[in-house]
Protein backbone atom coordinates (compact mmCIF):
# COMPACT_ATOMS: atom_id res chain seq x y z
CA UNK A 1 0.00 0.00 0.00
CA UNK A 2 2.85 2.38 0.65
CA UNK A 3 3.64 2.85 -3.00
CA UNK A 4 5.08 6.02 -4.53
CA UNK A 5 3.60 9.47 -4.07
CA UNK A 6 1.41 11.03 -6.77
CA UNK A 7 3.40 11.74 -9.94
CA UNK A 8 3.38 15.25 -11.43
CA UNK A 9 0.93 14.08 -14.08
CA UNK A 10 -1.39 12.61 -11.47
CA UNK A 11 -1.19 15.81 -9.43
CA UNK A 12 -2.26 17.86 -12.44
CA UNK A 13 -5.17 15.53 -13.11
CA UNK A 14 -6.14 15.60 -9.45
CA UNK A 15 -5.99 19.41 -9.46
CA UNK A 16 -8.27 19.57 -12.48
CA UNK A 17 -10.74 17.15 -10.90
CA UNK A 18 -10.88 18.73 -7.44
CA UNK A 19 -11.45 22.12 -9.07
CA UNK A 20 -14.58 20.61 -10.56
CA UNK A 21 -15.68 19.28 -7.16
CA UNK A 22 -15.12 22.56 -5.28
CA UNK A 23 -14.35 25.46 -7.60
CA UNK A 24 -13.22 28.87 -6.41
CA UNK A 25 -16.00 31.35 -5.69
CA UNK A 26 -15.81 35.09 -5.96
CA UNK A 27 -19.28 35.47 -4.49
CA UNK A 28 -18.25 33.75 -1.28
CA UNK A 29 -14.60 34.77 -1.42
CA UNK A 30 -13.43 31.15 -1.23
CA UNK A 31 -10.51 29.46 -2.96
CA UNK A 32 -11.07 26.38 -5.06
CA UNK A 33 -9.87 22.96 -3.93
CA UNK A 34 -7.12 23.28 -6.57
CA UNK A 35 -5.62 26.25 -4.69
CA UNK A 36 -1.90 25.39 -4.27
CA UNK A 37 -2.04 25.15 -0.46
CA UNK A 38 -5.15 23.03 -0.42
CA UNK A 39 -3.93 20.88 -3.27
CA UNK A 40 -0.68 20.31 -1.43
CA UNK A 41 -2.66 19.13 1.59
CA UNK A 42 -4.73 16.82 -0.64
CA UNK A 43 -1.66 15.34 -2.30
CA UNK A 44 0.19 14.86 0.98
CA UNK A 45 -2.73 13.60 3.04
CA UNK A 46 -3.87 11.31 0.25
CA UNK A 47 -0.48 9.78 -0.51
CA UNK A 48 -1.59 6.47 1.02
CA UNK A 49 -4.43 6.32 -1.54
CA UNK A 50 -2.20 6.91 -4.57
CA UNK A 51 -1.97 3.27 -5.66
CA UNK A 52 -5.72 2.83 -5.42
CA UNK A 53 -6.36 5.98 -7.45
CA UNK A 54 -3.62 5.66 -10.07
CA UNK A 55 -5.63 3.78 -12.69
CA UNK A 56 -8.66 6.04 -12.46
CA UNK A 57 -6.51 9.19 -12.63
CA UNK A 58 -4.67 7.79 -15.65
CA UNK A 59 -7.96 7.38 -17.48
CA UNK A 60 -8.82 11.00 -16.80
CA UNK A 61 -5.40 12.40 -17.71
CA UNK A 62 -6.14 11.80 -21.38
CA UNK A 63 -9.31 13.90 -21.00
CA UNK A 64 -7.63 17.14 -19.95
CA UNK A 65 -8.84 19.81 -19.52
CA UNK A 66 -11.49 18.37 -17.19
CA UNK A 67 -14.89 20.02 -17.38
CA UNK A 68 -18.12 19.34 -15.49
CA UNK A 69 -19.31 16.70 -17.97
CA UNK A 70 -16.02 14.83 -17.76
CA UNK A 71 -16.06 15.00 -13.97
CA UNK A 72 -19.56 13.53 -13.97
CA UNK A 73 -18.49 10.76 -16.33
CA UNK A 74 -15.53 10.04 -14.05
CA UNK A 75 -17.87 9.81 -11.07
CA UNK A 76 -20.02 7.31 -12.93
CA UNK A 77 -17.14 5.29 -14.31
CA UNK A 78 -15.08 5.13 -11.13
CA UNK A 79 -17.55 5.52 -8.24
CA UNK A 80 -15.26 4.13 -5.53
CA UNK A 81 -12.31 6.25 -6.59
CA UNK A 82 -14.51 9.33 -7.03
CA UNK A 83 -15.82 8.77 -3.52
CA UNK A 84 -12.27 8.60 -2.12
CA UNK A 85 -11.29 11.80 -3.90
CA UNK A 86 -14.46 13.54 -2.76
CA UNK A 87 -13.78 12.59 0.87
CA UNK A 88 -10.15 13.63 0.69
CA UNK A 89 -11.06 16.92 -0.95
CA UNK A 90 -13.67 17.81 1.67
CA UNK A 91 -11.30 16.85 4.50
CA UNK A 92 -8.56 19.16 3.24
CA UNK A 93 -10.74 21.96 1.92
CA UNK A 94 -12.79 22.52 5.06
CA UNK A 95 -9.79 22.79 7.34
CA UNK A 96 -8.15 25.53 5.27
CA UNK A 97 -7.98 28.75 7.30
CA UNK A 98 -9.36 30.94 4.47
CA UNK A 99 -12.30 28.62 3.94
CA UNK A 100 -13.05 28.42 7.64
CA UNK A 101 -12.99 32.21 7.92
CA UNK A 102 -15.30 32.57 4.94
CA UNK A 103 -17.72 30.23 6.68
CA UNK A 104 -17.49 32.09 10.01
CA UNK A 105 -15.79 29.17 11.69
CA UNK A 106 -13.06 30.07 14.16
CA UNK A 107 -9.71 28.93 12.81
CA UNK A 108 -8.66 26.63 15.63
CA UNK A 109 -9.15 23.08 16.83
CA UNK A 110 -12.08 22.52 19.22
CA UNK A 111 -9.69 21.86 22.17
CA UNK A 112 -8.71 23.58 24.45
CA UNK A 113 -11.08 26.54 24.09
CA UNK A 114 -14.26 24.57 23.47
CA UNK A 115 -17.59 26.23 22.73
CA UNK A 116 -20.39 27.81 24.70
CA UNK A 117 -23.98 26.64 24.81
CA UNK A 118 -27.16 28.35 25.95
CA UNK A 119 -28.52 27.37 29.40
CA UNK A 120 -31.28 24.77 29.68
CA UNK A 121 -34.91 25.72 30.13
CA UNK A 122 -36.63 22.89 31.92
CA UNK A 123 -39.97 24.67 32.13
CA UNK A 124 -40.46 22.89 28.80
CA UNK A 125 -40.74 19.64 30.75
CA UNK A 126 -43.94 20.66 32.53
CA UNK A 127 -46.30 18.71 30.22
CA UNK A 128 -44.10 15.62 30.47
CA UNK A 129 -44.14 15.79 34.25
CA UNK A 130 -47.89 16.32 34.28
CA UNK A 131 -48.59 13.19 32.24
CA UNK A 132 -46.82 11.15 34.94
CA UNK A 133 -45.17 7.72 34.90
CA UNK A 134 -44.93 5.89 31.60
CA UNK A 135 -42.79 2.86 32.49
CA UNK A 136 -44.42 -0.54 32.59
CA UNK A 137 -45.03 -1.85 36.07
CA UNK A 138 -44.46 -5.53 36.71
CA UNK A 139 -47.26 -7.88 37.78
Amino acid sequence: MTGQAFTNDEQSTLAALVAQIIPASETFNQPGADDPEILNDIVTSGAHLRDRLALALASLSGEMPVNAAKATAFRQGFPAEADMIQTLTAQCYYRDARVMRALNIEVRPPFPKGYTQEPNDFALLEPVRQRGEIYRTLP
Binding site: I21, A68, A71, Q91
Partner: peptide
Amino acid sequence: PVGTALAGMDWGHIPWGAGHH
Protein backbone atom coordinates in the same frame (compact mmCIF):
# COMPACT_ATOMS: atom_id res chain seq x y z
CA PRO B 1 -17.85 21.28 8.28
CA VAL B 2 -16.24 18.16 6.80
CA GLY B 3 -19.08 15.96 8.05
CA THR B 4 -21.60 18.46 6.67
CA ALA B 5 -19.96 18.55 3.23
CA LEU B 6 -19.66 14.78 2.98
CA ALA B 7 -23.23 14.10 4.15
CA GLY B 8 -24.53 16.80 1.82
CA MET B 9 -22.69 15.35 -1.19
CA ASP B 10 -23.86 11.81 -0.29
CA TRP B 11 -27.47 12.96 -0.11
CA GLY B 12 -27.07 14.76 -3.43
CA HIS B 13 -27.83 17.98 -1.61
CA ILE B 14 -24.47 19.60 -2.23
CA PRO B 15 -23.40 19.30 -5.85
CA TRP B 16 -19.98 19.15 -7.39
CA GLY B 17 -19.25 22.41 -9.17
CA ALA B 18 -20.48 25.96 -9.00
CA GLY B 19 -23.48 25.31 -6.74
CA HIS B 20 -21.32 23.73 -4.04
CA HIS B 21 -20.79 26.79 -1.85
